[in-house]
Simulated assay, not measured.
Amino acid sequence: MSTTTVKQSNPIYPIMVAIGVCHLINDTMQAVIPAMFPLLERDLGLTFTQLGMISFVLNMFASLLQPAVGFMTDKRPFPYALPLGMVSSFIGLSLLVLSTQYWMILVSVLFLGLGSAVFHPEGSRVSFMAAGNKRGLAQSIYQVGGNSGQALAPLLSAFVILPFGMKGAAMVLVLTSMGIFLLTKIAAWYKRQLEAEKLSKVKRVLVSSLPPLTKKQVGFALVVLLFIIFARSFYVTNMTSFYVFYLIDQYGVSVERGQLFVFIFMAFGVVGTFFGGPLSDKYGRKNIILLSVIVPIPFCLALPFVPLYVALTLLIIIGMLIMISFTVTVVYAQELVPSKIGTMAGLTVGVAFGMGAIGSVVIGMVIDMMGIRFTMIAVSLLTLLLFVAFLLPKDNATT
Protein backbone atom coordinates (compact mmCIF):
# COMPACT_ATOMS: atom_id res chain seq x y z
CA MET A 1 0.00 0.00 0.00
CA SER A 2 1.41 3.39 -0.94
CA THR A 3 1.57 6.08 1.70
CA THR A 4 0.47 9.62 1.03
CA THR A 5 -1.17 12.40 2.95
CA VAL A 6 -4.93 12.49 2.87
CA LYS A 7 -6.39 15.93 3.48
CA GLN A 8 -10.10 16.30 4.23
CA SER A 9 -11.43 19.82 3.81
CA ASN A 10 -14.62 18.83 5.60
CA PRO A 11 -14.15 17.00 8.92
CA ILE A 12 -16.82 14.38 9.64
CA TYR A 13 -18.46 16.08 12.62
CA PRO A 14 -21.17 13.45 13.32
CA ILE A 15 -18.49 10.79 13.86
CA MET A 16 -16.34 13.20 15.88
CA VAL A 17 -19.29 13.96 18.18
CA ALA A 18 -20.46 10.35 18.35
CA ILE A 19 -17.06 9.02 19.46
CA GLY A 20 -16.91 11.87 21.99
CA VAL A 21 -20.29 10.77 23.40
CA CYS A 22 -19.04 7.18 23.64
CA HIS A 23 -15.93 8.46 25.42
CA LEU A 24 -18.24 10.20 27.90
CA ILE A 25 -20.09 6.94 28.55
CA ASN A 26 -16.86 4.94 28.88
CA ASP A 27 -15.29 7.36 31.34
CA THR A 28 -18.51 7.73 33.32
CA MET A 29 -18.28 4.03 34.05
CA GLN A 30 -14.67 4.44 35.13
CA ALA A 31 -15.61 7.47 37.23
CA VAL A 32 -18.18 5.45 39.19
CA ILE A 33 -15.28 3.90 41.13
CA PRO A 34 -13.86 7.05 42.82
CA ALA A 35 -17.43 8.36 43.11
CA MET A 36 -18.14 5.38 45.35
CA PHE A 37 -15.19 5.96 47.69
CA PRO A 38 -17.21 7.76 50.41
CA LEU A 39 -19.85 5.01 50.21
CA LEU A 40 -17.26 2.23 50.42
CA GLU A 41 -15.49 3.90 53.32
CA ARG A 42 -18.77 4.36 55.16
CA ASP A 43 -20.47 1.00 54.48
CA LEU A 44 -17.56 -1.46 54.14
CA GLY A 45 -15.10 0.32 56.46
CA LEU A 46 -12.33 0.37 53.86
CA THR A 47 -9.12 2.25 54.65
CA PHE A 48 -7.65 4.96 52.43
CA THR A 49 -4.98 2.47 51.39
CA GLN A 50 -7.66 -0.02 50.27
CA LEU A 51 -9.50 2.71 48.37
CA GLY A 52 -6.24 3.61 46.69
CA MET A 53 -5.66 -0.04 45.79
CA ILE A 54 -9.06 -0.24 44.08
CA SER A 55 -8.14 2.74 41.93
CA PHE A 56 -4.68 1.24 41.38
CA VAL A 57 -6.06 -2.04 40.02
CA LEU A 58 -8.52 -0.24 37.73
CA ASN A 59 -6.09 2.26 36.30
CA MET A 60 -2.95 0.14 36.21
CA PHE A 61 -4.69 -2.65 34.30
CA ALA A 62 -5.93 -0.10 31.77
CA SER A 63 -2.52 1.57 31.72
CA LEU A 64 -0.53 -1.57 30.95
CA LEU A 65 -2.88 -2.78 28.23
CA GLN A 66 -3.52 0.48 26.35
CA PRO A 67 -0.11 0.78 24.62
CA ALA A 68 -0.25 -2.92 23.73
CA VAL A 69 -3.74 -2.55 22.23
CA GLY A 70 -2.62 0.56 20.34
CA PHE A 71 0.46 -1.21 18.98
CA MET A 72 -1.54 -4.22 17.79
CA THR A 73 -4.27 -2.15 16.15
CA ASP A 74 -1.70 0.07 14.41
CA LYS A 75 -0.57 -3.12 12.66
CA ARG A 76 -4.02 -4.66 12.28
CA PRO A 77 -7.01 -2.38 12.99
CA PHE A 78 -9.98 -4.12 14.60
CA PRO A 79 -13.05 -1.82 14.41
CA TYR A 80 -15.36 -4.06 16.43
CA ALA A 81 -12.97 -3.95 19.38
CA LEU A 82 -14.81 -0.74 20.32
CA PRO A 83 -18.20 -2.29 21.20
CA LEU A 84 -16.49 -5.39 22.61
CA GLY A 85 -14.49 -3.18 24.98
CA MET A 86 -17.66 -1.58 26.26
CA VAL A 87 -19.23 -5.00 26.74
CA SER A 88 -16.32 -5.79 29.08
CA SER A 89 -17.03 -2.57 30.99
CA PHE A 90 -20.72 -3.53 31.18
CA ILE A 91 -19.75 -6.86 32.77
CA GLY A 92 -17.42 -5.11 35.21
CA LEU A 93 -20.03 -2.58 36.30
CA SER A 94 -22.63 -5.34 36.69
CA LEU A 95 -20.26 -7.26 38.95
CA LEU A 96 -19.54 -4.09 40.91
CA VAL A 97 -23.23 -3.58 41.65
CA LEU A 98 -23.35 -7.11 43.10
CA SER A 99 -20.12 -6.75 45.12
CA THR A 100 -20.33 -7.01 48.90
CA GLN A 101 -16.67 -7.72 49.65
CA TYR A 102 -13.35 -6.05 48.90
CA TRP A 103 -12.03 -8.83 46.63
CA MET A 104 -15.22 -8.77 44.54
CA ILE A 105 -14.70 -5.06 43.89
CA LEU A 106 -11.15 -5.75 42.73
CA VAL A 107 -12.37 -8.39 40.26
CA SER A 108 -15.05 -6.07 38.86
CA VAL A 109 -12.60 -3.25 38.23
CA LEU A 110 -10.39 -5.63 36.22
CA PHE A 111 -13.18 -5.88 33.64
CA LEU A 112 -13.66 -2.12 33.70
CA GLY A 113 -9.93 -1.63 33.18
CA LEU A 114 -9.92 -4.03 30.22
CA GLY A 115 -12.83 -2.20 28.60
CA SER A 116 -11.07 1.13 29.00
CA ALA A 117 -7.80 -0.24 27.60
CA VAL A 118 -9.52 -1.45 24.45
CA PHE A 119 -11.64 1.67 23.96
CA HIS A 120 -9.10 4.50 24.23
CA PRO A 121 -6.56 3.71 21.45
CA GLU A 122 -9.23 2.76 18.92
CA GLY A 123 -11.44 5.68 19.95
CA SER A 124 -8.53 8.06 19.38
CA ARG A 125 -7.96 6.52 15.95
CA VAL A 126 -11.61 7.06 14.99
CA SER A 127 -11.26 10.68 16.09
CA PHE A 128 -8.17 11.03 13.87
CA MET A 129 -9.89 9.44 10.88
CA ALA A 130 -12.87 11.80 11.17
CA ALA A 131 -10.79 14.92 11.87
CA GLY A 132 -9.73 16.01 8.40
CA ASN A 133 -7.43 18.98 8.95
CA LYS A 134 -8.92 19.76 12.40
CA ARG A 135 -6.67 17.49 14.48
CA GLY A 136 -6.68 19.60 17.62
CA LEU A 137 -10.43 20.23 17.50
CA ALA A 138 -11.22 16.56 16.89
CA GLN A 139 -9.04 15.43 19.78
CA SER A 140 -10.62 18.10 22.01
CA ILE A 141 -14.14 16.89 21.20
CA TYR A 142 -13.01 13.33 21.93
CA GLN A 143 -11.31 14.24 25.21
CA VAL A 144 -14.13 16.55 26.32
CA GLY A 145 -16.37 13.52 26.17
CA GLY A 146 -14.06 11.56 28.45
CA ASN A 147 -13.44 14.39 30.89
CA SER A 148 -17.16 15.16 31.03
CA GLY A 149 -17.75 11.56 32.05
CA GLN A 150 -15.15 11.89 34.79
CA ALA A 151 -16.65 15.21 35.91
CA LEU A 152 -19.98 13.48 36.44
CA ALA A 153 -18.41 11.34 39.19
CA PRO A 154 -18.93 13.75 42.11
CA LEU A 155 -22.51 14.46 41.02
CA LEU A 156 -23.15 10.73 40.74
CA SER A 157 -21.74 10.32 44.23
CA ALA A 158 -23.75 13.19 45.77
CA PHE A 159 -27.11 12.65 44.12
CA VAL A 160 -27.25 9.02 42.93
CA ILE A 161 -24.79 6.69 44.67
CA LEU A 162 -24.89 8.05 48.23
CA PRO A 163 -28.71 8.21 48.35
CA PHE A 164 -29.37 4.93 46.48
CA GLY A 165 -26.18 2.91 47.08
CA MET A 166 -25.33 0.13 44.63
CA LYS A 167 -28.72 0.53 42.95
CA GLY A 168 -27.63 4.02 41.98
CA ALA A 169 -24.49 2.64 40.31
CA ALA A 170 -26.71 0.22 38.37
CA MET A 171 -28.38 3.20 36.66
CA VAL A 172 -25.16 3.77 34.71
CA LEU A 173 -25.76 0.40 32.99
CA VAL A 174 -28.47 2.07 30.91
CA LEU A 175 -25.87 4.48 29.54
CA THR A 176 -23.52 1.57 28.89
CA SER A 177 -26.13 -0.20 26.76
CA MET A 178 -26.53 2.96 24.69
CA GLY A 179 -22.75 3.12 24.28
CA ILE A 180 -22.55 -0.45 22.99
CA PHE A 181 -25.22 0.32 20.36
CA LEU A 182 -23.55 3.56 19.27
CA LEU A 183 -20.08 1.99 19.10
CA THR A 184 -21.43 -0.80 16.91
CA LYS A 185 -22.57 1.85 14.42
CA ILE A 186 -19.22 3.68 14.63
CA ALA A 187 -17.34 0.39 14.13
CA ALA A 188 -19.29 -0.22 10.91
CA TRP A 189 -18.26 3.24 9.63
CA TYR A 190 -14.66 2.60 10.73
CA LYS A 191 -14.63 -0.71 8.82
CA ARG A 192 -15.91 1.00 5.65
CA GLN A 193 -13.15 3.63 5.91
CA LEU A 194 -10.50 0.92 6.16
CA GLU A 195 -11.95 -0.91 3.17
CA ALA A 196 -12.01 2.31 1.13
CA GLU A 197 -8.35 2.98 1.97
CA LYS A 198 -7.43 -0.56 0.96
CA LEU A 199 -9.22 -0.27 -2.39
CA SER A 200 -7.70 3.12 -3.17
CA LYS A 201 -4.24 1.93 -2.04
CA VAL A 202 -3.86 5.22 -0.18
CA LYS A 203 -3.08 5.21 3.49
CA ARG A 204 -4.18 8.06 5.76
CA VAL A 205 -1.17 9.56 7.58
CA LEU A 206 -0.69 12.36 10.07
CA VAL A 207 1.02 15.61 9.08
CA SER A 208 3.23 16.70 12.00
CA SER A 209 3.68 20.30 13.12
CA LEU A 210 7.10 19.39 14.51
CA PRO A 211 10.33 19.91 12.53
CA PRO A 212 12.36 16.81 11.57
CA LEU A 213 13.83 15.24 14.72
CA THR A 214 16.41 12.52 15.24
CA LYS A 215 15.41 9.32 17.02
CA LYS A 216 17.34 10.54 20.07
CA GLN A 217 15.44 13.83 20.09
CA VAL A 218 12.11 12.02 19.69
CA GLY A 219 13.00 9.69 22.56
CA PHE A 220 14.00 12.60 24.82
CA ALA A 221 10.81 14.50 23.96
CA LEU A 222 8.68 11.46 24.78
CA VAL A 223 10.41 11.08 28.16
CA VAL A 224 9.76 14.75 28.98
CA LEU A 225 6.15 14.44 27.82
CA LEU A 226 5.55 11.34 29.93
CA PHE A 227 7.12 13.09 32.93
CA ILE A 228 4.65 15.95 32.49
CA ILE A 229 1.80 13.46 32.31
CA PHE A 230 3.10 11.79 35.48
CA ALA A 231 3.11 14.99 37.54
CA ARG A 232 -0.20 16.21 36.16
CA SER A 233 -1.93 12.85 36.68
CA PHE A 234 -0.62 12.53 40.23
CA TYR A 235 -2.05 15.93 41.10
CA VAL A 236 -5.40 15.43 39.34
CA THR A 237 -5.87 12.00 40.94
CA ASN A 238 -5.29 13.55 44.35
CA MET A 239 -7.94 16.19 43.64
CA THR A 240 -10.58 13.85 42.20
CA SER A 241 -10.20 10.99 44.69
CA PHE A 242 -9.10 12.52 47.99
CA TYR A 243 -9.65 16.30 48.04
CA VAL A 244 -13.24 15.75 49.20
CA PHE A 245 -11.85 14.24 52.42
CA TYR A 246 -9.65 17.34 52.90
CA LEU A 247 -12.69 19.58 52.53
CA ILE A 248 -14.58 17.51 55.11
CA ASP A 249 -11.63 17.46 57.54
CA GLN A 250 -10.43 21.06 57.23
CA TYR A 251 -13.64 22.98 56.49
CA GLY A 252 -16.29 20.74 58.04
CA VAL A 253 -18.39 20.52 54.86
CA SER A 254 -20.79 17.66 54.14
CA VAL A 255 -19.86 14.88 51.74
CA GLU A 256 -22.43 16.16 49.23
CA ARG A 257 -21.08 19.72 49.34
CA GLY A 258 -17.51 18.48 49.12
CA GLN A 259 -18.38 16.46 46.01
CA LEU A 260 -19.85 19.60 44.43
CA PHE A 261 -16.49 21.35 44.92
CA VAL A 262 -14.76 18.45 43.19
CA PHE A 263 -17.34 18.59 40.41
CA ILE A 264 -16.58 22.29 39.85
CA PHE A 265 -12.87 21.47 39.58
CA MET A 266 -13.57 18.75 37.02
CA ALA A 267 -16.25 20.69 35.13
CA PHE A 268 -13.87 23.57 34.47
CA GLY A 269 -11.32 20.93 33.49
CA VAL A 270 -13.74 19.93 30.74
CA VAL A 271 -13.83 23.56 29.56
CA GLY A 272 -10.02 23.64 29.48
CA THR A 273 -9.89 20.34 27.63
CA PHE A 274 -12.17 21.62 24.89
CA PHE A 275 -10.16 24.78 24.22
CA GLY A 276 -6.78 23.05 24.41
CA GLY A 277 -6.93 21.45 20.97
CA PRO A 278 -8.12 24.47 18.94
CA LEU A 279 -5.69 26.76 20.79
CA SER A 280 -2.81 24.40 20.00
CA ASP A 281 -3.86 24.33 16.32
CA LYS A 282 -3.52 28.12 16.27
CA TYR A 283 -0.70 28.92 18.72
CA GLY A 284 1.38 25.74 18.74
CA ARG A 285 1.44 22.59 20.86
CA LYS A 286 4.35 23.56 23.10
CA ASN A 287 3.00 27.05 23.84
CA ILE A 288 -0.31 25.64 25.04
CA ILE A 289 1.35 22.89 27.08
CA LEU A 290 3.44 25.57 28.82
CA LEU A 291 0.34 27.68 29.49
CA SER A 292 -1.43 24.67 30.94
CA VAL A 293 1.22 23.27 33.27
CA ILE A 294 3.29 26.31 34.33
CA VAL A 295 0.66 28.99 35.03
CA PRO A 296 -1.34 26.89 37.57
CA ILE A 297 1.68 26.10 39.78
CA PRO A 298 1.34 29.08 42.19
CA PHE A 299 -2.39 28.42 42.54
CA CYS A 300 -1.74 24.74 43.32
CA LEU A 301 0.80 25.73 45.98
CA ALA A 302 -1.66 28.16 47.59
CA LEU A 303 -4.74 25.91 47.57
CA PRO A 304 -4.15 24.03 50.87
CA PHE A 305 -3.79 27.28 52.83
CA VAL A 306 -6.69 29.47 51.69
CA PRO A 307 -10.22 29.95 53.10
CA LEU A 308 -13.03 27.90 51.60
CA TYR A 309 -14.43 30.70 49.40
CA VAL A 310 -10.95 31.35 47.95
CA ALA A 311 -10.44 27.61 47.46
CA LEU A 312 -13.47 27.53 45.18
CA THR A 313 -11.96 30.26 42.98
CA LEU A 314 -8.61 28.46 42.84
CA LEU A 315 -10.29 25.18 41.94
CA ILE A 316 -11.89 26.86 38.92
CA ILE A 317 -8.57 28.35 37.77
CA ILE A 318 -6.51 25.20 38.35
CA GLY A 319 -9.10 22.85 36.86
CA MET A 320 -9.48 24.87 33.68
CA LEU A 321 -5.77 25.50 33.11
CA ILE A 322 -4.20 22.18 34.03
CA MET A 323 -6.54 20.15 31.83
CA ILE A 324 -5.90 22.26 28.72
CA SER A 325 -2.81 20.11 28.16
CA PHE A 326 -4.67 16.78 28.28
CA THR A 327 -5.65 16.91 24.63
CA VAL A 328 -2.44 18.58 23.50
CA THR A 329 -0.08 16.01 25.03
CA VAL A 330 -1.84 13.24 23.10
CA VAL A 331 -1.61 15.16 19.80
CA TYR A 332 2.00 16.16 20.51
CA ALA A 333 2.98 12.52 21.10
CA GLN A 334 1.22 11.42 17.92
CA GLU A 335 3.10 14.09 15.95
CA LEU A 336 6.39 12.92 17.45
CA VAL A 337 5.70 9.44 16.01
CA PRO A 338 3.09 10.05 13.28
CA SER A 339 3.17 6.47 12.00
CA LYS A 340 1.91 5.13 15.36
CA ILE A 341 -1.37 6.91 16.06
CA GLY A 342 -2.87 4.18 18.24
CA THR A 343 0.39 3.38 20.04
CA MET A 344 0.99 7.01 21.03
CA ALA A 345 -2.61 7.49 22.13
CA GLY A 346 -2.38 4.29 24.16
CA LEU A 347 0.97 5.29 25.62
CA THR A 348 0.03 8.81 26.70
CA VAL A 349 -3.44 8.00 28.00
CA GLY A 350 -2.15 4.73 29.44
CA VAL A 351 0.61 6.52 31.36
CA ALA A 352 -1.98 9.00 32.63
CA PHE A 353 -4.06 6.08 33.90
CA GLY A 354 -1.01 4.34 35.32
CA MET A 355 0.28 7.38 37.16
CA GLY A 356 -3.21 7.94 38.49
CA ALA A 357 -3.18 4.34 39.70
CA ILE A 358 0.16 4.65 41.45
CA GLY A 359 -0.86 8.04 42.79
CA SER A 360 -4.02 6.59 44.33
CA VAL A 361 -2.09 3.97 46.30
CA VAL A 362 0.74 6.29 47.37
CA ILE A 363 -1.58 9.14 48.35
CA GLY A 364 -3.89 6.78 50.24
CA MET A 365 -0.95 5.34 52.19
CA VAL A 366 0.47 8.79 52.98
CA ILE A 367 -2.95 9.97 54.22
CA ASP A 368 -3.20 6.91 56.50
CA MET A 369 0.31 7.54 57.88
CA MET A 370 0.73 11.32 57.85
CA GLY A 371 -2.77 12.77 57.70
CA ILE A 372 -4.81 14.52 55.06
CA ARG A 373 -3.38 18.06 55.49
CA PHE A 374 0.26 16.98 55.17
CA THR A 375 -0.61 14.99 52.05
CA MET A 376 -2.41 17.86 50.33
CA ILE A 377 0.59 20.16 50.89
CA ALA A 378 3.06 17.51 49.69
CA VAL A 379 1.12 16.83 46.49
CA SER A 380 0.85 20.56 45.75
CA LEU A 381 4.66 20.78 45.88
CA LEU A 382 4.84 18.01 43.29
CA THR A 383 3.55 20.43 40.64
CA LEU A 384 6.97 22.12 40.65
CA LEU A 385 8.13 19.18 38.52
CA LEU A 386 6.04 20.55 35.65
CA PHE A 387 8.76 23.08 34.86
CA VAL A 388 10.34 20.32 32.73
CA ALA A 389 7.85 21.35 30.01
CA PHE A 390 10.33 24.01 28.90
CA LEU A 391 12.56 21.16 27.63
CA LEU A 392 10.08 20.04 24.95
CA PRO A 393 11.18 20.64 21.33
CA LYS A 394 9.56 23.59 19.62
CA ASP A 395 6.90 22.94 17.01
CA ASN A 396 6.47 24.96 13.82
CA ALA A 397 3.81 27.21 15.31
CA THR A 398 5.87 28.01 18.42
CA THR A 399 7.31 31.51 18.47
Score class of each variant (00 low, 15 high):
214 T>G: 10
256 E>T: 11
212 P>R: 10
229 I>A: 05
290 L>N: 02
210 L>Y: 09
280 S>R: 02
249 D>P: 08
253 V>D: 09
288 I>L: 11
208 S>D: 02
253 V>W: 13
208 S>E: 04
246 Y>A: 07
294 I>E: 00
234 F>T: 12
193 Q>F: 14
291 L>Y: 13
199 L>I: 09
270 V>Q: 03
257 R>H: 12
213 L>G: 01
283 Y>G: 04
285 R>S: 01
200 S>D: 01
219 G>I: 13
283 Y>N: 04
269 G>V: 01
200 S>G: 02
218 V>N: 10
230 F>Y: 12
194 L>A: 01
293 V>W: 06
285 R>T: 01
259 Q>D: 06
215 K>T: 11
293 V>F: 09
231 A>W: 09
284 G>H: 04
201 K>V: 13
271 V>P: 04
231 A>Q: 13
238 N>T: 15
193 Q>L: 15
268 F>G: 03
234 F>L: 14
202 V>C: 12
283 Y>W: 14
202 V>M: 15
210 L>D: 02
207 V>S: 09
254 S>L: 04
208 S>P: 05
249 D>R: 10
289 I>W: 06
201 K>I: 09
207 V>M: 12
279 L>C: 13
251 Y>C: 05
213 L>Q: 03
286 K>N: 05
217 Q>M: 04
276 G>Y: 07
242 F>P: 00
241 S>M: 14
239 M>A: 04
294 I>Y: 01
258 G>C: 01
252 G>A: 02
199 L>C: 10
234 F>K: 07
218 V>M: 13
291 L>G: 15
273 T>I: 05
289 I>R: 14
250 Q>W: 12
231 A>E: 15
267 A>C: 04
219 G>M: 08
236 V>N: 13
237 T>H: 12
239 M>Y: 07
253 V>I: 10
201 K>A: 08
198 K>N: 08
238 N>V: 10
202 V>K: 08
290 L>Y: 02
283 Y>F: 08
269 G>M: 03
198 K>T: 15
285 R>P: 02
270 V>T: 10
267 A>D: 03
293 V>K: 05
265 F>C: 05
268 F>W: 06
248 I>P: 07
227 F>Q: 12
215 K>P: 08
228 I>M: 06
231 A>F: 09
287 N>E: 04
204 R>V: 11
195 E>V: 06
216 K>Q: 14
203 K>W: 14
272 G>E: 00
290 L>K: 02
221 A>G: 06
296 P>W: 10
201 K>S: 09
282 K>F: 07
214 T>S: 10
211 P>I: 00
241 S>A: 10
246 Y>N: 15
219 G>R: 08
261 F>L: 14
216 K>E: 09
204 R>D: 09
277 G>Q: 03
291 L>H: 07
222 L>F: 12
232 R>N: 00
260 L>S: 03
281 D>N: 00
245 F>K: 14
231 A>C: 13
199 L>R: 13
224 V>C: 03
290 L>T: 00
219 G>W: 08
285 R>G: 01
220 F>Y: 15
255 V>W: 13
